[in-house]
Design a protein around this nucleic acid. Sequence first.
DNA 1: GTGACATATAAGTCTGACTTTTTGTTCCCG
DNA 2: CGGGAACAAAAAGTCAGACTTATATGTCAC
Lengths: 233, 233
Amino acid sequence: MSTTGRGLHGRVLDTLGPEITAGEYPPGSVLRTDELAQRFDVSRSVMREVVRVLESMHLVESRRRVGVTVLPACEWNVYDPQVIRWRLAGADRPRQLRSLTVLRSAVEPVAAGLAARNATAEQCAELTECALGMVAHSRGHQLEGYLFHDMAFHRVILTASGNEMFARLGDVVAEVLAGRTHHDVMFEDPDPAAVTLHVQVAEAVRERDAARAEELTRQITVGALQELDILAP
Amino acid sequence: MSTTGRGLHGRVLDTLGPEITAGEYPPGSVLRTDELAQRFDVSRSVMREVVRVLESMHLVESRRRVGVTVLPACEWNVYDPQVIRWRLAGADRPRQLRSLTVLRSAVEPVAAGLAARNATAEQCAELTECALGMVAHSRGHQLEGYLFHDMAFHRVILTASGNEMFARLGDVVAEVLAGRTHHDVMFEDPDPAAVTLHVQVAEAVRERDAARAEELTRQITVGALQELDILAP
DNA sequence: GTGACATATAAGTCTGACTTTTTGTTCCCG
DNA sequence: CGGGAACAAAAAGTCAGACTTATATGTCAC
């Protein structure tokens, strides 16, 4: 499942990265390259490459004569897909899931509005197909099938918006949806109201009704917020 | 101004990174580590570290027996601050500025709404201070002073939202604002309506009026979109 | 044409020596 | 006793060279 893992370098990264993002080393902790190399039984060259990557993610800072300093969480590149994966796999998964869901609630309605303006005929077709797939798998505990179409639906919306920044959130949204289905308790079938909303969004986009697409998507994301008890009192 | 630059490694990165994000190597182009090391007159160790970082940004992919392949732009980690800086400094700066402004238009209103709920007393004070600073520098070509307070204002809003994903967009928004002031032609003083809106947002946040803060901020971002001729017909 | 095999290639890894920067200490002088 | 300059140590940074490994590609037999 991990993108990395390729090569010795990736394996070390996949161990050390999650440790840092999990907060195992308090901010300001100093690691020494040599010690790390010993610990993972790799050469300093490999270890240096790992540190450089962690540095580019702003997880650590390497300074001469000092060592590799762990940076506070507020410095991290929290949009790095790798970092997101590590954090979703770690202890503060719930917190991360909330942050991302709030981000979704901001981005997806606007993206849907843009999609209504910019979507190609093919994308409109994909969208309706996904929505129908969701309907088809919405009853009888076909959670995996439902999830599959749900992820595809939101990915198409984000891509069809025509904005590259939105498009790149497709993976993130997919991972949030997957997290909801797999980890959090998901006894029942999905909310019928949500399913209907997706169908209606597909409709609105097809009919180029930007305002309606935006409003309907906003309702979807409000539902997602409510699921996590993020209310608007 | 550049975060990197520290060390030989950073200098090479600051040359090669912009070249790639500027599209100088078409997607699929193959670079060889040895040749790059020769070109920049550095050892392979250093060059390997650079490649690893570029790889972690999904700008390139390194495969045995093939070389370092440049990836298509749709794969890039466009949220990486480094990548954003490189692209803003390069040829497709206008395109990047548009993407980011659309992102702002989605995120900032929601962030303002959250800020109205979560801002501390201190943050409310900072906010009014920034707004007043904008007013004070809004006439007589005091563009730099205006920009300073504008950047601070939006950074406080994003931080006060309490959402880490929003908070990390502070730098990006600041760079967009700076770009608008410095590069794009900015003959006249800022729009008085925009200045008023900022003051009102500060008010709304102080009064915990989330809906109003959100709506007012939406008006600010609509103004930013219009400046770039991104309309809603 | 298809499959197995050989080969060349470029990345990946390791090692050891050397350089450079920075920090903390020491020591001298005011 | 205090402050500043010289010094020493520590850790990252850099380099060069040898070796390993995966893999794309070409070759040959069937």
